[in-house]
Write a protein that binds this DNA or RNA. Sequence first.
DNA 1: AAACCTCACAACCGCCTTCCG
DNA 2: TCGGAAGGCGGTTGTGAGGTT
Length: 318
Amino acid sequence: MRGGTRPSGTKRVSNCGEEESRELRRGPWTLEEDTMLSHYIAKHGEGRWNMLAKCAGLMRTGKSCRLRWLNYLKPDIKRGNLTPQEQLLILDLHSKWGNRWSKIAEHLPGRTDNEIKNYWRTRVQKQARQMNIESNSKRFFDAVRCFWVPRLLQKMEQTSTSSSSSSSLTTQNQMDISPSPNYPAAPMVQNPNLISSENSMPAVTSPNTTISADSMAIISQQPQIPENSKNPLSPSNNYSVHNNINPILDDNCYYVGNSNFDMEGFNGEYPISSDMGSFYNLPSQSQEGNWTSYDMTDTLWTNLDDIWQLRDLEEMGI
DNA sequence: AAACCTCACAACCGCCTTCCG
DNA sequence: TCGGAAGGCGGTTGTGAGGTT
């Protein structure tokens, strides 16, 4: 929600009855300031931040107080690394909404828009840089869809199976490192590769987030590209996600391939094989049939499995 | 051991929207 | 209708911790 609200009948300028020119503090918050802010909000509630800052005796702007509270002090803030499920959800939601961090954060309980934004900038955009792709480009989202998402799904599945004696489709993923019992379980999806190998339709899976059977099938199919010409990162390879986290989200089905990102200069076709390998720094096959080195340094894609996955794509004739 | 580098994330900034007098 | 204040949002920066050379 954008825009502020102000209770009617209140003075706009109020500082608890005293006018003063205060020397405003900046920079990191001290424990004392945190305590003062927390105690004040516990007693009086949040909102009207400028007045709150003054009344609480904080030498901070209202904005600063609000940010500190929302991003750090609020009791339901979730700490720790983002789980693969959360990462997947972020990728999904970002493909739909772009840099609408607060909107994305609404669907990740306990995570703040700031945290998601930081994740995107430090991890995702870094990945894009390593591939020499604009992070908001169609190419990057194709790469995410075809390689990163399956990777996360695999990670989730590995974690799920390794932490449970059963590979039941309803097994709760155990990788959630949330320190707080107050948060809903992180979204869980089933590894499409496992599903396809078992020749069963994917059941989907989470009390919060599901990926549709069609979607999973699409993911598990790997890119569908006409022979001899197409890049596996074709925009035709969509997957959709049904998100049940929040009833606010009434448009439950969306397609990454139909994302709102800049598609300028993208014609849906890329050169394949060596060209693509060099473009994404991914393994490519030399004329002699030898595989060239895999230069990606990021931990997400340095697994040999990725190399074999790409090799599989080539062997599929794409 | 020290210098340097990289990364994650907290915090700030500026712009925008909303609301009310 | 308009102007100002409050609050929200996305982009950017500063900084400390940990890793590497």
